[in-house]
């Protein structure tokens, strides 16, 4: 994390960069992002090089990382930690394929900046099974054929586990509503509902 005091060091860096003519040739486009960049161009480029430290746990493994602030939790998992079970479906919080648990709560990892997860404990689909033993929800998804192409499946399963844990799986209709943040284009919804319903009715603590 960028410490608050350290954050004041911008001037030094800006001064340094002003001495270099590295970025003077930058031409601007009418995009909003560039309008914002109209001033202090050099500083902004300095930030491009900036990575901040990040400590988090993923599937009970501790990581000490350096990340650009703009990296999302989803891209961190997939592109840097190579935990590709978590999927990118829309990148805008509109499909649920990227659902993971952060401190036990289901979230869309695509809209969470990695840097916002300092000190947090993340569980992804890779961390759900205990060794070779499938999590009951994973087994139920296989049994009820709760997927076809399988791309939304990790997000569905992470969401489903949370749905039961939250106490929002008391009826099929409640499951339907609380699973509506996970889109399945193959249309496996009824099978997904059956799988969750069975796990819930099974009464096991999951």
């Amino acid at each position: 994390m960028a410490e608050i005091d350290k954050n004041q060091s911008g001037d030094t860096r800006r001064d340094f960069l002003k001495k270099s003519s590295l970025f003077t040739a930058l031409s601007l486009t009418p995009l909003t992002v560039l309008k914002a960049a109209d001033q202090k161009v050099d500083e902004r480029f300095a930030e491009l090089f900036e990575k901040i430290p990040l400590n988090l746990k993923v599937n009970n493994k501790a990581y000490t990382l350096k990340v650009e602030p703009r990296v999302t939790l989803l891209d961190l998992l997939r592109e840097q930690l190579h935990l590709t079970g978590t999927k990118k479906g829309c990148d805008h919080g509109q499909c649920g394929a990227c659902t993971v648990h952060v401190d036990g709560v289901r979230v869309n990892s695509c809209l969470s900046l990695a840097a916002m997860n300092e000190g947090k404990s993340i569980t992804t689909i890779e961390g759900l099974a205990k060794g070779d033993e499938l999590h009951p929800m994973q087994a139920a998804f296989i049994k009820h054929d709760g997927f076809q192409c399988g791309y939304c499946t990790p997000g569905q399963i992470m969401s489903a586990v949370a749905c039961v844990r939250e106490g929002h799986a008391n009826s099929k209709d409640e499951i339907r509503e609380y699973m509506s943040g996970n889109i399945c284009r193959c249309g496996a919804y009824p099978n997904i509902v059956d799988a969750i319903h069975e796990v819930k009715e099974g009464g096991k603590v999951i």
Partner: peptide, 14 residues
């Protein structure tokens, strides 16, 4: 997305 600065604080005043 530009690579913005990221600052965290737990103090409202800050």
């Amino acid at each position: 997305m530009i690579n913005f600065q990221f600052v965290r604080t737990s103090v409202i005043k800050t």
